[in-house]
Write a protein that binds this DNA or RNA. Sequence first.
DNA 1: TTGTATGCGTTATCAA
DNA 2: TTGATAACGCATACAA
Lengths: 339, 339
Amino acid sequence: MTKTTLKEIADILDLSISTVSKALKGYPDVSQQTKKRVLELTESLSYTPNTFAQSLRSRTSKTIGVIIPAMVHYFFSNIIDAILREAESRDYMVILMQSNEDAQLEKKQVDLLLKKGVDGILMSLSNKTHNFEHLQKIIDYNIPLVLFDKIAKLVPCSKVTIDDIKASYDAVQFLINKGHQRIAYFRGDLNPQNSIDRFLGYKKALEDNDIAFDPSLVYLCPDADFKDGYTAAEKLINDHGTSIDAVHSITDLTAIGAINYFNKKNIRIPEDIAVLGFSNWFMSSIITPTLSSVEQNAGKMGEESIRILFDEMDSKQKGMTIKHQKIVIDTQLVLRNSC
Amino acid sequence: MTKTTLKEIADILDLSISTVSKALKGYPDVSQQTKKRVLELTESLSYTPNTFAQSLRSRTSKTIGVIIPAMVHYFFSNIIDAILREAESRDYMVILMQSNEDAQLEKKQVDLLLKKGVDGILMSLSNKTHNFEHLQKIIDYNIPLVLFDKIAKLVPCSKVTIDDIKASYDAVQFLINKGHQRIAYFRGDLNPQNSIDRFLGYKKALEDNDIAFDPSLVYLCPDADFKDGYTAAEKLINDHGTSIDAVHSITDLTAIGAINYFNKKNIRIPEDIAVLGFSNWFMSSIITPTLSSVEQNAGKMGEESIRILFDEMDSKQKGMTIKHQKIVIDTQLVLRNSC
DNA sequence: TTGTATGCGTTATCAA
DNA sequence: TTGATAACGCATACAA
C-alpha cells in the first residue's frame, strides 16, 4: 500500500492535477460538481498530501523543535506535556531533543533543527551553555525562538521565566518570619542564571532583615540532585551541628536528599531544622515529612512558551514585525510539614 | 539570512548543479580539484541540504515517531530518554506524541505520523485501545512498527515487554517465602495486557503455594495513581483490619499511596503490613519506609525497542524481508525496607 | 471552469 | 570530467 497522490486522483477523474488541487483547497473557480467528485474520491482513497512536497514548496514544516536539558525531570516532563498538548491542538508536530546538559550537543541539535526546517524553536538551555552563537544563528535564520526557564538574558528573543530572585526571596522571608535566623542555603551550579538569581534572592532576604550573610552556610550542589543534597546536609551538620535553624535549597530533589540525611540522623524536621525546597515536585507531597516548596507552574510555563512561539510564527507568516515578549510566570509558596 | 542551495554554489563556482551534487556525494567521476573547490565553498557557506527536497526524492525522512500514553511518568520519561539518546547517535529525529490514554487521539496521532512520512514508529498503547486498525494501517503502509510495554499481542509486529506474569509471580513468591499468607493485591485497570498479566502472576503464585485466592483481597486501582493506592489501602483496612500480612501493587505509585495511608494510621510497615510495589520509581528509594519493588529496566526497554526499529528500517531499505522480534526484558526484585 | 507550465531543491540517468 | 534533463508531489500564475 502506497500513498495516494494528486496525479492518481486526477487520472482517475480525468481531470488535471491543478484542478484537483484547487478543488481540495476550496478555490472558487471550480464547479460544484467537480469539487464534489474530487472530495468524494479523495475521501474514499483517504488521500493526504505529501508533506515533504508541501514543505518544499511552502517553506514551512508544521513542525516545531524543542530542546531541553533533561527528560527525566519532573519539571521538564510537565513542560513537555503542556507543549505536546498545545502543539497537538494546532496540528503541529514536535521534534524533541535533550542536550543532557552538554553545550556541544545542544549546538549540534540546533543545527539539526535548522537543517530540518522547523518553523519555530523552544529551548531551555543547558547549564554549561555560555556561548550563544547557536542561538544567534537561529535568529539570523529568522526562525522564531522562545527561551524558557534556563534563558540567556542578552539574546534578543522572547523569554518565559519565573522571577527566581523574588521566589527565593519570598521563601527565605517566610522562614525569617517564622523566627529562623541561621538559614543555610544549598545552591545550584555557579553559572546558570536561575541558580544565580535564587541565590541572590536568598542573600537579599537576609540583608533586608539585617541578618549577616555567612558564606559558610552556603553549600554548593552542582548537579542539584538527591546525592548533592544528602552530601551537603552531611557537611552542614559536620560543620555546624544543629546550630542551624533552616535550609533553603535550589530545588526539591536536593532538599529531599537533605531530608533523607536528617531523618537518618534523627534530626527532627522542622523542630531542629526546617527545610524549604524549590519547584514543588510531586514527590515532595508524599515524602516524610512532606516538603514545603515553591510552586513553579511548569504547565503554565509550557503553555505560555508555545503560545508566544505560535504568536511569533503567525506574525512572521503575515509579514508583520515580531515583537519579543518577556513573560514572568508567578510562583507560590506551598506550605507543608517541613517548615 | 537564508539557507544556501546547490544552485547558489554552482553559480559561484561556475559549475552545474549536478557536478556540485556529485562532488558532495563523493562520486568518483569528479576531478579532485573540482571536488576540493566545492567542499571548501560548501564548508565556508556552511551548506546543508534541504531535507524536504531530499525526503521528497528519497521517500525517507530520517525521522521516527513515538507515541506514549503519558509523559509525566517516571517509567516513560526514562524510556524516552533512552530513545532520544539512541536516535541522536544515529542522526535521526524523534517526533513525540502522547495519547493521554485516549484511544481516539492515539488513532489520530498515528495518522499524523503516517502523513508526516516517518520512517518508523514506536508505540506504547493507551489503556483504552481495544481496536487495532490503526496499527494495521501502519503495517499496511509498510512502515516498521515496534510496540513496547503496552502491546497488542495479536498485532503482527515486533514487541518489547517484560514478563509481567513472572515478575509479579516472583514478587508474591518472595512475600510468601517471608511467611506472608494473607496477601492483598492492588490491581490496575481491567483491560491492559500487563495489568492482566501481573494479576495472573499474583494468582498463580498463590495457587502454586496452596494459598486460596480470596477475591475480597483484590482492590481495583483503575488509574494506578497515588490516590487510587491511598483509597484502596483505606478500604483494605476498613474491610479487613490488620488481618492482612502484605500488599502487592500494580505499580509503585499506588504502593506509595498505600504507604501514605498506613503511615497516617500508624500501621507499621513492614511489621503490620509489608508492601511491595512494581516499576521501581526513583521516588521509591527515598520515601519512608523505602519501598521494595520490581525493577523494570526502562532504559533497556527503550534501547532495545529503538534498536529493533532501526534493524527493521535497515532491512526494509535493503529490500530484505523483515523478521519480527519479540524481546523480553528481564526484571529484578529490588529489596528495601517495606517488606 | 479547466488546464498548462513552472518552480521548490535534490538526485540520478544519460549525453556530451 | 562535466552538464542537461527529468522526476519526486504540490501549488499557483497564467493561458485557454
